[in-house]
Design a binder for these strands. Structure first.
Length: 876
RNA sequence: GGGAGAUUAGCUCAGCUGGUUCAGAGCAUCUGCCUUACAAGCAGAGGGUCACUGGUUCGAACCCAGUAUCUCCCA
């Protein structure tokens, strides 16, 4: 035998991946004879490298896609990358900085040239890495959210929504990232719990020198932008100040004291400074009370000349300075610590500045309503369903979507400003000129007179179109691909982008295809380390997926990831899981090694009918179970089912039952069945571990040029009448075997020391039909039937029958008695509880008839067992 | 502050409309084995007042109420 003792994935994986690609198995095209199955990848950042989250996410997608392909569907998995405007731009800026180039010194065009260079050079590495994992994407369909076609789709949608009145320009309070120099959507803001300082500042009451109103604030540097101080009208401490004015410390500007129930009496001093330009709540308060807005901040977070003081200083420097100056002026009453939530930028980590600015917005209310409906009525199913609640709450409270970003890397907003300050929205410059001429009435306007908006669109404004745009559904709305593959079937993604992305894809789908973009959304958890910490570069607790694959094999890593990841639950990643996966591949490899080594002797009779009959039944049961788990998107349960089928039922039981003695041949019939079983198992395993299964598939038999496991048909359920009985009977036989093995263990007998078994039973038939199996697995030389317990024997009870293993000179009478007594006590307790249940009239009346019947049967069994035990005990 | 979900073996989780042998799996643990497919293995074993307190019911891990703890979402 020349087959290696351990499975070595490295040799095998590259080979099969290449062959699959050569054969074009991953390619999909509309095929009216087959049902379509499609999945679009959540496009990873073009700058990204594979991390554990991708591993989980893409393994799940590949399992779904491979199974669908085997089920005979036209399986299409569209790969691609996202231009990720902020993340990529930040990366490019940092890179240029390393080279000593400052973004400020570059023109937009120059910067974009650098960015594209960088993208061409390093972008899309992640897709190559996915191939190592075995991802069966249709690589010919690889898309990029900023490629010309997809950009065109984005512009078309922008123009269309603008013309429908769904997009508008407006001044709004936005989340400003001073480091990135851009506005962020609410979803890009990460709240962080921190300890902050609350400063109590004394505002002098106008006309009452020496009388102060103390205001608590965490942002003293914004007092120059104050336009009022608000108190609660019911606050008795301040009734004397109703209608009064106070003076801003240091600055001396007078501002009114206003009354509003919004102010919490208990919080701080009960007096709130109102700074509409720099706080969302203050802004709304300002609108309500018709207050002016004074914006004292620059884009980079420094103070502007409107502040009058500290001009040019960064907000945090200004804070330090003003605190000192206030203290010197005697207007700082006290400083206290309090726990607050700091809003930070997801991309740059900078502290967010609530800021008023002119931005583009997309109206959400109508689209959100429709998008909620299709999830409420299960047209789109979320897995697990608990996310439905979250989704509803979000969709009912959604605010308009700020879609402009002050960046260069991205799709530039197609708005063109005329010299008179008005603007037109158009697909391209040419169209813009025409529109501008009409709008201005000036036929001489040229492109040179127009100035395009400097901002780009939010990345999600391109990825929300992904399920449509990857099939060119905007350019050519009636093309064969989109008609066939849209709506897609399943979307696998992380819950944290349920709103950013999933909800918006649903909106776009309904708006532009009048149809949902997918049927099922499978939400994966977050991959954490064994201690439950999020994996991060700074903690250094994230293994490199490619190292893992190199060390344990892609199949091992894939199964390892799936062993403990129910939908929506976080995955506590432990290297032990991957080891378990690797061990499983090795187990399968060795099962194959064993069967491959057998020689056939055609003259031998078929002696393993019982084993074959049992494993066939077992296979059917497990297949049904797997299919059911798959329907419910319970991938790990499905894997566990086949894991146990292979390891426990096939290897530990079936192969042991049929295994010929060393170097002895096997009969042809048994081998035929065994190979057929193995083939079926390979099919069931293939979606989870594609490489090793394909390898064994080809080792097992000569295969035709197109005969690959990758495209082999998924087994069909073929229930056989009587299977449950077959399985139940074998379980009884195996329980007897376990009893014998237990005695071997207890008595320290080797696994092969021949023993005999005596059974005290009337039902000789069952035992006789499994005689050969029990003998073999129990390593028995004989099975006999007795009326009473043999003199020197250890006993055990299985299925209500007493068995004895005669063991001369090794019997501890006391221990045996104790064991029997214990068993008896247990049986009596059980009988009593059943009797009690049956003695309850109401139970007998109310419970279903078959249930009562079962209870009666239990009682009878228990009584028989008690009698047997009592006799044995007496005999000792 | 508002809302949602959770709490079952050492760990990660199953447990469908309350009722098959006083609760299941995988991993981990313990004991014994290098038994010519596999020590990345084999055989066997132990381990749980189903968070707590009440209630409904003939019967509750499951339904209801309250309490505690945790997680997430929103403010």
């Amino acid at each position: 035998m020349s087959i290696a003792k351990t499975y070595t994935p490295a040799d095998v994986e590259a080979k099969w991946y290449q062959r699959w690609q050569e054969q074009g198995f991953f390619k999909a095209k509309p095929n009216p004879r087959k049902p379509a199955y499609s999945v679009v990848i959540p496009p990873p950042n073009v700058t990204g490298v594979l991390h554990m989250g991708h591993m989980l996410n893409n393994t799940i997608q590949d399992v779904l896609v491979r199974r669908a392909r085997m089920q005979g569907k036209e399986a299409c998995w569209v790969p691609g990358t996202d231009h990720a405007s902020i993340a990529t731009e930040a990366k490019v800026v940092a890179l240029l900085k390393e080279k000593g180039i400052d973004k400020k010194d570059l023109s937009r065009e120059e910067f974009l040239t650098h960015a594209w260079d960088w993208k061409e050079k390093y972008g899309g590495i992640i897709l190559e890495q996915l191939k190592k994992l075995g991802a069966s994407c249709d690589w010919d369909r690889t898309r990029f959210t900023m490629e010309p076609e997809l950009t065109e789709a984005v512009l078309r949608v922008f123009v269309d929504l603008y013309r429908k009145g769904q997009i508008y320009r407006g001044i709004r309070m936005v989340n400003w990232d001073p480091m990135g120099g851009t506005a962020l959507s609410d979803e890009e803001v990460i709240p962080k719990d921190t300890m902050a300082k609350m400063y109590h500042l004394k505002y002098e009451v106008v006309g009452h020198p020496g009388q102060f109103l103390t205001v608590a604030t965490s942002r003293p540097e914004t007092i120059m932008a104050d336009v009022a101080v608000a108190v609660n009208p019911h606050d008795p401490r301040y009734t004397h100040l109703h209608g009064a004015k106070v003076r801003i410390p240091l600055l001396g500007r007078e501002i009114p004291v206003i009354l509003d129930e919004y102010v919490t009496i208990e919080f701080g001093t009960g007096a709130l400074k109102v700074t509409p330009a720099h706080d969302l709540n203050d802004y709304e308060l300002g609108l309500k009370h018709n207050l002016p807005v004074i914006d004292i901040l620059n884009n980079d977070g420094s103070l502007n000349e409107k502040a009058q003081l500290y001009v040019g200083q960064d907000r945090f420097a200004a804070r330090r300075n003003i605190v000192k100056d206030l203290e010197d002026a005697g207007q700082l009453d006290k400083v206290e610590e309090y726990a607050s939530v700091l809003q930070t930028s997801e991309r740059t980590g900078a502290v967010i500045e609530p800021r008023l600015s002119l931005q583009w917005f997309c109206k959400m209310d109508q689209m959100a309503k429709k998008a909620l409906e299709v999830v409420e009525n299960d047209e789109i199913k979320l897995h697990p369903p608990k996310f439905k609640n979250m989704y509803r709450v979000w969709m009912e409270n959604v605010r308009d979507w700020c879609i402009s970003r002050q960046l260069w890397w991205g799709q530039r907003i197609p708005a063109y400003y005329l010299p008179d300050g008005t603007f037109v929205v158009a697909l391209n410059e040419e169209e813009a000129v025409q529109l501008a001429r009409v709008q201005s009435g000036n036929q001489d306007l040229t492109a040179a007179d127009l100035r395009q908006d400097e901002d780009v669109l939010d990345t999600w404004f391109s990825s929300w179109l992904w399920p449509i745009s990857v099939f060119d559904g905007f350019k050519d709305p009636d093309n064969a691909d989109i008609n066939y593959f849209y709506p897609t079937d399943d979307l696998v993604t992380a819950p944290e982008i349920l709103f950013f992305w999933v909800a918006r894809m649903i909106m776009a789908g309904l708006e532009y295809r009048k149809e949902v973009p997918f049927r099922n959304v499978y939400l994966t958890g977050i991959v954490r380390d064994a201690q439950g910490r999020k994996m991060s570069k700074s903690l250094g607790n994230s293994p490199d997926p490619l190292d893992l694959i190199a060390q344990y094999g892609a199949d091992g890593v894939r199964t390892g990831m799936l062993f403990s990841s129910p939908a929506g639950n976080d995955l506590l990643f432990d290297i032990k899981l991957v080891e378990q996966g690797r061990n499983f591949t090795n187990k399968l490899w060795n099962a194959f090694r064993l069967t491959k080594g057998w020689e056939v002797d055609a003259a031998l009779p078929f002696v393993n009918a019982k084993a074959v009959e049992w494993f066939s039944a077992k296979l059917q049961t497990s297949l049904a179970e797997m299919d059911e788990h798959f329907e419910k998107f319970r991938m790990s349960d499905s894997l566990m089912t086949v894991y146990k089928l292979v390891w426990d039922d096939f290897c530990s039981v079936y192969l042991e039952m049929i295994k010929p003695a060393y170097l002895a041949p096997i009969d042809a019939e048994t081998l035929r069945h065994t190979n057929s079983f193995l083939e079926t198992l390979l099919k069931l395993l293939h979606p989870f571990m594609p490489f090793i299964t394909e390898e064994i598939w080809h080792e097992l038999a000569e295969r035709g040029p197109k005969d690959y496991l990758c495209v082999a048909p998924w087994p069909k359920q073929q229930p056989v009448a009587g299977s449950p009985e077959v399985i139940a009977r074998m379980e009884k036989a195996l329980d007897i075997v376990a009893g014998i093995r237990n005695i071997r263990n207890q008595k320290g007998l080797g696994p092969n020391k021949p023993l005999t078994l005596a059974a005290k039973t009337d039902d000789v038939a069952l035992l006789q039909s499994y005689d050969a199996i029990i003998r073999k697995l129990g390593a028995l030389s004989d099975i006999s039937f007795v009326e009473a317990a043999p003199a020197a024997a250890v006993g055990f009870v299985s299925g209500g029958v007493e068995f004895f293993v005669p063991l001369e000179g090794q019997i501890d009478l006391g221990a045996e008695k104790e064991r029997l007594a214990k068993e008896l006590e247990y049986a009596q307790g059980f009988r009593d509880s059943v009797q009690k249940k049956l003695g309850n009239e109401k139970f007998v009346q109310n419970a279903k008839a078959d249930l009562v019947e079962r209870e009666r049967q239990k009682l009878a069994d228990a009584e028989a067992k008690i009698t047997a035990l009592e006799q044995s005990l007496a005999a000792l």
